[in-house]
Amino acid sequence: MKMRSFLMTCAGLGISAGLYSCKNQEAPKQEVQEPEVTVAQVHQTNGIVKNTYSAALEGVRNIEIRPQISGYLNNIYVDEGAYVNAGQLLFKIDDRPFQEQYRTAKAAVAVAEANVKNVKIDLDRKKELVENHIVSDLQVSQAMATYEGAQAALEQARAAASSAKINLDFCVIKAPVSGYVGRIPFRLGSLVSAASMEALTLITDINEVFGYFSMSESDFAAYQEWTATHSKRDSVTLVLANGSVYGKRGVIDAVTGQFDKNTGSIAIRTKFLNPKRELRAGNTGRIEIERHMEGILLVPIKSTIAVQDKIYAYVLGEGNKVKQALLEVVGKTAEDYYVKSGLSDGQTILTGGLGFVRADMVVKPKQAQ
Rank of each mutant, 00 (worst) to 15 (best):
M3R: 12
S5C: 11
L7K: 09
M8Q: 11
T9Q: 12
G18S: 14
G18D: 05
Y20K: 11
C22P: 11
P35S: 05
P35G: 04
Q41M: 12
Q41P: 08
G47K: 05
V60Q: 09
V60N: 03
R66N: 12
Q68C: 07
Y72T: 02
V78A: 00
A82S: 07
G87L: 01
L89E: 07
I93G: 01
P97Q: 02
P97Y: 00
E100R: 14
K106T: 10
A114L: 10
V116H: 02
L123F: 12
L123T: 06
K127F: 09
K127H: 07
L129C: 05
L129N: 03
V135D: 04
A145K: 09
T146F: 10
A150T: 05
A157L: 01
A159L: 04
F170Q: 10
V172F: 06
I173A: 01
G179H: 00
Y180Q: 04
V181P: 00
R183E: 09
S190H: 06
S190E: 02
E198N: 13
L202H: 14
I203Y: 04
F210Y: 15
G211K: 10
Y212G: 08
E225L: 12
A228K: 14
R233N: 09
V236Q: 03
S244D: 12
K248R: 15
G250E: 01
A254E: 05
K261P: 15
N262V: 10
N262L: 10
S265I: 06
R269P: 06
L279Q: 00
T284K: 13
H292T: 14
E294P: 08
I296M: 07
L297Q: 06
Y312G: 03
A313R: 04
A313Q: 02
V322G: 00
V330C: 08
V330I: 09
A334Y: 05
K340N: 06
L343A: 08
S344Y: 09
T351P: 02
L354S: 01
K366T: 09
